[in-house]
């Protein structure tokens, strides 16, 4: 827990510093005439993140020293990491696929593929789960087109 706090706090600090030194000065815009400069609120928020991040890291360090922990650990299970990461990769690939195909065309195979990866083998479940949601979405989009929303 302390190790996680330490590393996540470092990420918060890194982002806050990035925001204060590059993102906000470069992209938040400057207007000396404005009574409230456009960068004021993002700057305050970035300072809030920086101060909070420093406290989180310090608490993490104190906790690790007291518990005799090191910042790095060898107790990482690659299989568990891979299991946690594959759905992200799958949705990432799905987004690339959806850049070229319509969701109503690619949706069924995408659901089917994920169901198979999650261990489902019953054909009627695979068929029903990959067809019914697509039909529902298709029906909804047709209805929305008819009423002129999309």
């Amino acid at each position: 827990m302390q190790r996680q706090s330490f590393w996540s706090g470092l990420i918060v600090i890194a982002f806050a510093l990035l925001a204060l030194n590059w993102l906000i000065p470069e992209y938040a815009g400057v207007n000396p005439q404005a009574q409230m400069p456009p960068e004021l609120v993002p700057n305050l928020a970035a300072w809030l993140m920086l101060i909070s991040g420093i406290i989180i890291v310090l608490r993490g360090i104190v906790g690790m020293v007291r518990a005799g922990q090191l910042p790095l650990t060898r107790e990482i299970n690659p299989r568990a990491v891979a299991w946690a990461a594959w759905p992200f990769a799958y949705v990432g690939v799905a987004i690339i696929v959806l850049d070229s195909f319509k969701l109503t065309h690619a949706g069924g195979p995408l659901i089917l593929g994920m169901l198979l990866l999650l261990g489902e083998r019953r054909w009627y479940v695979l068929l029903g789960c990959s067809v019914v949601p697509v039909i529902l979405l298709y029906g909804l989009s047709v209805h929305l087109m008819r009423v002129g929303v999309i």
Binding site: P87, I95, G107, L110, I111, M114, G119, C129, V134, L137
Partner: peptide
């Protein structure tokens, strides 16, 4: 495990 892919599909939809 049946619910997850369907919910993801509706998120994208």
């Amino acid at each position: 495990h049946v619910v997850i892919p369907i919910v993801i599909f509706f998120c994208l939809g």
